[in-house]
């Protein structure tokens, strides 16, 4: 009798060990994925951007192209195509002054998309980046209705040739991730890099919480504004020259 029990114990032990081995890589992968160098995203950091509309050139859409290439978007401009970043041309109604600027997810401190999402698929990382969990999104599009910046797109059709670092999914909502996969590697977003490469330097990315960062210094010294600041959402993207 006791022998049988021993067998059973051994079997159970082995089964548990096997299950552990099978599950461990998944758990480990999850840990490695979450954040910078294996560290989780920290609330000590608040990633943001400063966009200088004076430097943003009319007709240039290098930031848009770079975004499409980096994130595997088609770059199409149909009303059903995803556009994570777009160039907006503005004309002051009273003075007639024209200006250009790139518009994308504003990574709000109080994001309406996160408030309204029924499944918590829209979420804000500790470092201020607003993202969509593609596995939780049920595609109700309430976040698109709630976003004051029209920053979100819905994937209307089958996707091909995805960038493995930027998973997307038909029937789910998506938007600018601030190139979170690059940021977690210590790099800057693709749009900023492209803008600098074109010699315009209209986009500056950095940590808004670090008083020594270039973005913080600039914000302290020049007049900047947030789009629809009246809504009180405190976006992480600020604009200069508006």
């Amino acid at each position: 009798m006791s022998e049988i029990n021993n067998d059973r114990r051994q079997f159970m032990g082995k089964a548990l060990a096997m299950a552990g081995i099978a599950i461990a890589p998944g758990v480990m992968l999850y840990d490695v994925k979450a954040g910078n160098d294996g560290k989780p995203a920290s609330s000590k950091v608040r990633w943001g951007m400063l966009i200088d509309s004076n430097q943003c050139k009319e007709g240039c859409d290098d930031c848009v192209t770079a975004c499409s290439t980096e994130n595997g978007l088609s770059g199409g401009k149909k009303s059903t195509d995803s556009q994570w970043i777009r160039k907006v041309e503005l004309k002051d109604m009273r003075s007639g002054r024209s200006l250009n600027l790139p518009m994308m997810c504003q990574h709000c401190e109080q994001p309406p998309c996160v408030d309204v999402c029924p499944t918590q698929a829209s979420f804000k990382r500790a470092d201020g980046i607003v993202l969509v969990d593609k596995h939780r999104c049920i595609g109700c599009r309430y976040c698109m209705m709630a976003c004051p910046y029209k920053a979100r797109s819905f994937v209307h059709e089958e996707l091909h040739d995805q960038n493995p670092e930027v998973p997307r999914g038909k029937g789910t909502v998506e938007s600018c991730t601030l190139c979170v996969h690059r940021v977690d590697r210590g790099e800057s977003p693709a749009c900023m890099e492209a803008c600098a490469k074109a010699g315009h330097n209209a986009i500056l990315f950095g940590d808004l919480n670090d008083p020594e960062s270039e973005i913080s210094k600039r914000i302290r010294t020049v007049a900047t504004s947030q789009i629809r600041a009246d809504l009180g959402l405190n976006p992480g993207i600020r604009y200069q020259g508006m």
């Binding site: 309204v116 918590q120 999104c137 049920i138 595609g139 109700c140 309430y142 819905f154 994937v155």
Partner: peptide, 20 residues
């Protein structure tokens, strides 16, 4: 819905701030 197959997620991941 874009993903009607995931409707159960609305119950398993409930967001108490969402009117939906």
């Amino acid at each position: 819905l874009g993903r009607p197959d995931r409707i159960i997620v609305a119950a398993t991941n409930y967001n108490s701030t969402s009117v939906f």
